[in-house]
Amino acid sequence: MLPLRLVLISLLIAANTVLHVLPLLLVALVKALLPFDRVRRASNPLLTGLAESWIGVNTWMMDRFTSMRVDVQEDAVLQVDGHYLVLANHQSWVDILVLQKVFNRRIPLLRFFLKRQLFWVPLLGLAWWALDFPFMGRYTPKQIARRPELARRDTEATRRACEKFRAIPVAIMNFVEGTRFTPGKHATQGAPYRHLLKPKSGGVAFVLDAMGEGLHAILDVTIAYPGGRPSMMDLLADRIPEIRVHLRQRSIPDELLRGDYQNDRAFRARFQQWMNRLWQEKDADMTRLLAD
């Protein structure tokens, strides 16, 4: 029965994707060929609506075809027309579906910073491009040491993306750890947290610098899997009994909006200390969510 279940659900997901992405790409083509402000303003809600509809159908299937429970604890007041920076821990690709389930049509469409290679994912890569998802190089420290201009390239990509987002309601998503948690990575890092990897502050600092006071708040999301870190196969096979989510709305400290993260060592140290304190709280939240 399991192979048949996996095939049927995969076909439904593929059909939902094709059904939504094809008209989305058509609207994006019109937007690209007619680069006028009026056309852009008219096309953006259509593009966002198609993306939210695609997410809504995926969420409905997740609710319909699995017995998984998602327990959400909210300390936030959400606005569908707000401007947010969303920060979350990262353990699995399932995290993205959880975030979409929690936030879809409650805040603006989540936009992720994606690896440039993901542009070539069939259909979805073009859809992400049409929705103005920023594509980044994600270079290693060794690559940047050999070619410092690579770091500036990602910084400029971040600034260009944020300039587009100033004019529309937006929720910019950042997995601050930069990679999915595994025990091996945790041991290699020597992270001072029980359930988390070390946070990377640079991306958050760039967004706060580029968006300035245009952001309303930070939405701090902690995702816990009491049954263990799942895979997408676990989700499709209905092997995830429960997911626990804690959502906390945080104000943005004024002192973090004015500073040069790249060149001012003192500011960079203060920013990293703030991020480390946030991550210590998140680690405590993880312990509580897993123990409840």
Rank of each mutant, 00 (worst) to 15 (best):
I55Q: 09
L26Y: 01
R180Q: 09
R138I: 10
M62N: 07
L197R: 01
F271R: 04
L19S: 07
V70E: 04
F175G: 01
K115R: 12
P23Y: 10
Y225R: 10
F133W: 07
T222V: 07
A15V: 15
L150N: 12
D283M: 02
I9M: 08
I9P: 00
I168R: 15
G125E: 08
R180N: 02
M233G: 11
L33M: 14
L26R: 00
P226M: 10
N104C: 10
L19N: 00
D260E: 11
Q262H: 13
R258I: 10
R268K: 14
V18E: 01
G228H: 09
D209W: 12
F181H: 04
R153A: 14
K101T: 12
L126E: 10
V245K: 04
G82C: 10
A237T: 04
A32Y: 06
W120Q: 11
N58G: 14
T66D: 12
T182N: 07
R106P: 05
G56Y: 03
A171C: 11
A127S: 13
L2K: 11
T155M: 10
S92L: 08
A15M: 13
R194Y: 00
N276Q: 13
Q249D: 01
E177G: 05
Q272P: 00
K282S: 08
T66L: 11
W129P: 02
Q117F: 06
I96D: 03
H216V: 00
N263E: 13
F271V: 06
R153L: 12
D264G: 05
D95N: 08
R38H: 07
H20L: 13
L215Q: 04
A14Q: 10
A167N: 09
T158M: 15
T140M: 08
G259S: 05
R270Q: 13
T182S: 15
F135R: 05
P23S: 10
L87A: 02
P148Y: 06
E281T: 09
L110P: 01
F271A: 09
T17P: 00
I218H: 02
R41Q: 13
E163G: 00
G125P: 06
G212Y: 07
M62K: 01
Y139M: 06
R38K: 10
P230Q: 11
A76E: 00
V176I: 14
G49N: 13
P3M: 08
L78H: 02
L123Q: 05
R229W: 01
P35E: 09
Q79E: 12
F165C: 04
I96C: 04
R248P: 00
A32W: 12
G202K: 12
V30L: 15
I144T: 06
K31I: 00
D260Q: 10
Q262T: 06
Q249R: 06
K142P: 00
Q280A: 13
R153C: 00
L12N: 02
R180E: 02
E52Q: 15
W60C: 07
W93A: 11
A88F: 04
T179H: 07
V245Y: 03
S201L: 03
V176K: 03
K200D: 06
L2P: 00
K31C: 08
R138W: 13
I96F: 05
P226R: 05
L289C: 06
H186C: 03
L24T: 11
L114R: 05
M233H: 09
R69W: 00
D234Y: 09
S251G: 10
L290R: 11
V80W: 03
P141D: 08
Y225D: 08
F112N: 03
L6W: 03
R194Q: 15
A151Q: 15
H90L: 06
A187G: 09
A145L: 11
P108Q: 12
